[in-house]
């Protein structure tokens, strides 16, 4: 335990607020895990046409991002898609 840990430690009130913000974004977007799974599968299909990706390692979630033009934060679909091979290997040419 160093002195720095004391400063780094976040208040549990702030943790609660951050967690709530995230959970409410997906609640409000009405994205059930089923829907998310469907989106994920479609993304895998589309991207696979152009490059080889790691379907197992693919991660998608709805988060918040700062909107460019106007006020504050807007929901955003975040996708982390690990690429195995940039070369095209799929059947479509």
């Amino acid at each position: 335990m160093s002195l720095m840990d004391l400063f780094k430690k976040k208040n549990s009130g702030d943790i609660a607020k951050d967690r709530l913000k995230l959970v409410l974004i997906s609640d409000r977007a009405n994205c059930s895990p089923d829907v998310m799974e469907m989106i994920k599968n479609d993304i895998i299909q589309v991207i696979s046409k152009y490059m080889e990706i790691d379907a197992e390692g693919l991660d998608i979630q709805i988060t918040q991002t700062e909107s460019e033009g106007n006020n504050g934060n807007v929901p955003a679909l975040y996708a982390n898609i690990p690429i195995k091979d940039m070369k095209h290997t799929g059947p479509a040419r």
């Binding site: 208040n11 009130g13 913000k21 409410l24």
Partner: peptide, 17 residues
């Protein structure tokens, strides 16, 4: 007392959300 030491969300946090 909990709000003051940061261990409970305050009124503004709740109305913001």
């Amino acid at each position: 007392d909990m709000v003051k030491r940061g261990d409970m969300m305050n009124i503004n946090d709740v109305t913001d959300i």
